[in-house]
Simulated scan of single mutants.
Amino acid sequence: MRGEYKVPGGKLVAADVEIAGGVMREVRVSGDFFLEPDEALERIDRALTGLAEDATVATMAQAVSTAVEDAEMIGFTPEAVAIAVRRAQGRASSWSDHTFEILNPGPLEPLTHLALDQVLLEEVGAGRRPPTMRIWEWGAAAVIMGSFQSLRNEVDLEVAQQLGVQVVRRITGGGAMFVEPGNSISYSLYVPGSLVDGLSFERSYAFLDDWVVGALRSMGVDASYVPLNDIASPEGKIGGAAQKRLANGAVLHHTALSYDIDADKMLQVLRIGREKLSDKGTTSAVKRVDPMRRQTGLPYAEVIERLIAHFRERYDTADGEITVAEYARAEQLVAEKFSTPEWLARVP
């Protein structure tokens, strides 16, 4: 059995594995990485050979780390080796194992977007929907708070009401974001847990956003991933990501990209404190968000088209639609959960 894993920003690691009697009888690791000294590769193979076939990524990575403690691994890690082995065993999947349905329904109300995230995640987790990528466009101005943020500390509700800005709360963690029609592009990935098997939360963020970094670079933006969850260029922050995982393993990963932010309005609505800015190397919140409009020189609609085109180039895709039943469930969740004062003020 053979498995492969491409390290985000790094090299390809492959593993050929033979299993008998519940044990990995032979493991051969290869790839376009760099490793010094040469004989360390044989030590990696020996460290993995003889382990139980259901050994965890952590167990395998520890075995590899011990085997190469005096070696230099360039472009890959012990965890990358372990993930390649898991994929060879069929316990972890790769992008090429899935066909992603692409949804691009156009502008929707903020509450509908948030409810659809929960609905589509649950549908993928239940096996009723294939892995899916959904583009968000905003039908109204809004502040979307992270699941665990304090309402009173993050948003000036009086100003938001005066400016006609909705205040809503999503199911993922992270910070508040300010959006208006035509100023922000978001997308969600709904994937099975097997796609991120063995990846830490931190590594899974970079892994699931690797394609969008490539898409931005193809549009002339010198984009890179900044741990834990930011996408940036040398000119400033472009976007940020957040995740939610269900007990059945399904993963929601969504990312918001700023196209042409109204920084003055954002600063009126959001209470962005000095503490949040202190580790960003800037005294101005305006400098923290750099719009794609200036960096790409492309119209808003074309940026969306290019994002989708790049995703199609990298992965197997099919056009899809949100079903009538999914919309109905989303509207039910809007009424029963996302529009309620109890949900909005779950953290007062």
Results as ranks from 00 to 15, higher is better:
G90V: 07
Y259R: 06
E109F: 10
R86N: 12
G220S: 12
S339A: 07
V124I: 13
E18W: 11
M1D: 13
R87N: 06
T255G: 11
A176F: 05
A40V: 09
S186D: 15
A285Y: 07
K11M: 12
L35T: 03
M133R: 07
G249Q: 06
R134F: 08
S30Q: 13
P37R: 05
V212E: 07
T99S: 05
A126Q: 12
V168P: 02
A71G: 03
F148M: 15
T255I: 15
E137F: 03
G173P: 08
S258F: 00
E302K: 00
L120M: 12
R134I: 09
Y300L: 05
L35H: 07
A47G: 02
D16Y: 10
G182W: 11
S233L: 11
E275P: 08
S96Y: 08
D16K: 14
T132F: 02
E342N: 00
N183K: 14
A247F: 10
A88F: 05
L216R: 00
E123G: 06
L157V: 11
R271N: 09
R217T: 04
I238N: 03
L307V: 10
L298V: 06
G21D: 11
R314I: 12
A285R: 03
V269K: 01
H98S: 06
A160T: 06
A345Q: 04
E109N: 13
R245S: 08
A301Y: 08
P348C: 07
A115L: 05
D16L: 10
L270R: 01
E202R: 15
S188P: 05
S93F: 04
D319Y: 10
E180C: 00
N248T: 10
P192D: 04
S96H: 11
I74S: 12
W343Y: 06
T172L: 12
I322C: 11
E275N: 14
G273H: 07
E4K: 14
T132D: 06
L246W: 07
A140S: 13
F201E: 15
V13L: 02
F33S: 00
K237F: 07
F76P: 05
